[in-house]
């Protein structure tokens, strides 16, 4: 601490004088991962709410009366296929093939839209049968949890369209590659959340 006296004349320095430079976007992936982890906590809360309230039917319809597991299986297949096609988009992106990347993104988007359509059909069917979010605590927590996941998929599709336009205009430039990698993490993360949804909500709800 002898050097403190000598530098005291110039005033104390509380920061690193020379921070080594970071390349632009070098911390984006870690930052986006941290966002995904916080998103994971949102879903954990909603899963916990469903776990607590999922058996409170208020003499209303139970999961066994409402869920069509065949439809859920088709839905799960759509999301799983969209995951692998997004993987193919990433592989073609690495090779710098713009056309193939766009094509795979388009296929992914179609699978995402199919997933959303089936989910909206299911919701509409349930509401038509009187199983609205207001009916019971089970239905409130069900619509909140599955609806939040569906909303994430919706925004993922909006993001995908945005990036397809970006790639069409500017090509696979460094910034676009970074954005596509972030969306890749987001999209695969949504598939991971869906594993929890179909297991805990649909399959275990039907068992209950």
């Amino acid at each position: 601490m002898a050097s403190t006296a000598t530098t005291a004349d110039a005033g104390p320095v509380f920061h690193l004088e020379e921070e080594h430079a970071h390349a632009e976007g070098s911390s984006t992936m870690l930052g986006f991962w941290l966002y995904l982890m916080s998103d994971c906590l949102i879903f954990a809360m909603l899963f916990a709410a469903f776990g607590v309230l999922g058996g409170n039917y208020a003499a209303g319809p139970a999961p066994k009366d409402l869920f069509d597991l065949g439809l859920v299986a088709v839905n799960t297949t759509m999301l799983l296929l969209s995951s692998i096609t997004y993987g193919f988009a990433m592989l073609t992106m690495v090779k710098g093939r713009v056309g193939a990347t766009q094509a795979w993104l388009g296929v992914t988007m179609l699978f995402g839209l199919a997933f959303l359509s089936i989910e909206l059909y299911e919701f509409a069917h349930m509401i038509h049968e009187g199983a609205t979010p207001q009916r019971s605590a089970f239905l409130s927590s069900f619509f909140t949890l599955v609806g939040t996941h569906g909303l994430h998929v919706t925004f993922g599709i909006v993001w995908m369209v945005t990036l397809m336009i970006q790639v069409a205009r500017y090509g696979l430039i460094e910034a676009n590659r970074r954005r596509l990698m972030c969306l890749s993490m987001f999209w695969h993360f949504l598939d991971v959340v869906w594993i929890g949804v179909f297991t805990f909500v649909y399959l275990m709800g039907t068992l209950r």
């Binding site: 299986a73 297949t77 799983l80 995951s83 692998i84 990433m90 592989l91 690495v94 990698m181």
Partner: peptide, 22 residues
């Protein structure tokens, strides 16, 4: 950046396992 993209083989193995596990 150090971010991995995986390989075609990796994606196909993951997909195959996921289908079975689903």
């Amino acid at each position: 950046g150090g971010a991995a993209h995986g390989s075609l083989k990796g994606y196909l193995i993951g997909f195959f396992l996921s289908v079975i596990l689903t």
